[in-house]
Amino acid sequence: GGVGALSGSYVAPKAVWLPAMKAKGLEISGTFSRQAGSISMDLSLTNKALQVMSDFAIQFNRNSFGLAPAAPLQINAPLGPNQTVDISLPLNTIGSVMKMDPLNNLQVAVKNNIDVFYFSTVYPLHVLFVDDGKMERQMFLATWKDIPNENEAQFQIKDCPLGAEAVSSKLQGSHVFTIAKRNVEGQDMLYQSLKLTNGIWVLAELRIQPGNPSFTLSLKCRAPEVCPHVYQAYETILKN
């Protein structure tokens, strides 16, 4: 992990997605990143079998946001026993769309010369936050008013010892943009927007009270099923 520090967008450490015992000795760990506007699946493939592995390929099942490999999985030399290769697979979002449960679930098939293996993982929604997600202020006010309060989702972000300025700049590094900030009765109210790769806008109000490490995040979106995942992204960005 930690690669994201260069571009600002947080990258989680790699996790094991496919254990060797389930894939005839092939172990895959990975994470997702977004750098300079491009999404990548960063993979480590380890050969824990006694034979050489070759002829690798990867395929995704249809998924909620059309994530797909933008290039073939390129592993130039056969992978010998106990060898690991690190690959960054570029992704695009122009693949086939099918709503998954959970929304950010991704089913992956990997083949090599031995067999075909399947696993599923979930991606953090912030890799889908585009860099032109700063909503025009008039549009924000109109949209906020237009989406009924019943469709507002509210979450608590606990144990976050940051002030409003630090919160704004940390979130902006991951393409969550602060449009306005107000101080009412001592508490900071941040109005923020972000846009997903498929054009869905999310509007946010983040309430920060001085001396209280627990924030209130209110989200409004015309596709409310994304809200819990956006909240999860806020947690991830703010706490790393």
């Binding site: 008039q138 006010l141 906020w144 306005a180 900030k181 107000r182 009412v184 508490q187 109005y191 209110s218």
Partner: peptide
């Protein structure tokens, strides 16, 4: 912050959200 005439609108929103 930009002076686009909307500063006041955001103030009203924040106020209304704090004291509904």
């Amino acid at each position: 912050e930009m002076d686009d005439g909307l500063d006041e609108a955001f103030s009203r929103l924040a106020q209304a959200r704090t004291n509904p």
